[in-house]
Amino acid sequence: MTTALSINNLRKVYDNGFEALKGISLQVEEGDFFALLGPNGAGKSTTLGIVSSLVNKTEGSVSVFGHDMERELSKAKKCLGVVPQEFNFNMFEKVIDIIVTQAGYYGIPLNEARERAEFYLRKLGLWEKRNERARMLSGGMKRRLMIARALIHNPRLLILDEPTAGVDIELRRSMWEFLQEINAAGTTIILTTHYLEEAESLCRNIAIIDHGTIVQDTSMRELLLQLNTETFILDVNPPLQSKPRLNGYTCELLDDHTLEVEVEREQGLNAIFQALETQGIQVSSMRNKANRLEELFVSLVDKNLAQEKA
């Protein structure tokens, strides 16, 4: 399998002396849907900035589909599409002009650029807005405009830096579907996001970066297996006056209809239902207290912080 992105010993020290990346290495395979997660200031955007040629690296190497970014920069850039975190188009330009101009930068002739622009603008629900100035678009539309712009040269690797920040849930889900569609068609995708449910539902592999180092680099499945304890919220009937007896489980009564139960991985859920049923308690619904990935993410970041302090 071809490696879409290869990062080796990448280090970045800013002019003020801040070391944003401390020699990270990362491989993303072709066709992957890869999540790069981390708290604010962890080094995600710096990493993607270096890959996108927007940030100068201090040390290390980056190659995109085998094209080294120092020796074959132009070829590497042709393989890349970038959707940055901040809006970075000319707000006074028309939507169609932004897309067609970007195509021109990749050497795509005008007629072909217009055809591709129509395809992606229709696909992302922006065709009706093609003659509007970009500043007149809503936040969600601006995000979709940046995705259309990044795809205009049909990149093999698409980098999305928090593409759904500030986007409502309906639009977010339609963007997920679109991204899954282009990933299924062969585009490798690297995503950073603060919505961990987004990463969990879209991505197959994941790296977690914190304080400029990679603290996890594995498959989503492997990572979730590391989760030893899950907390569930149970809605119960009839109303409870006190905590029910659940031997071996830690539970807490949040209110007379709501029970919080911590479940170890090896324990399973059947025993909880049986114990409650014998006490005449019915479970009407059940949900995770927090997203599973979120629980892991917080524990990994906390662990890394504790190690750094030590």
């Binding site: 996108s52 927007l54 132009s74 970038v82 970075n88 000319n90 970007q102 930068y105 990749y106 712009r149």
Partner: peptide, 14 residues
């Protein structure tokens, strides 16, 4: 200032 220089910097134009 508007950061759309990034459109050029990510592209393969020499």
């Amino acid at each position: 200032f508007q950061r759309n220089i990034e459109e050029l910097l990510v592209s393969p134009i020499p």
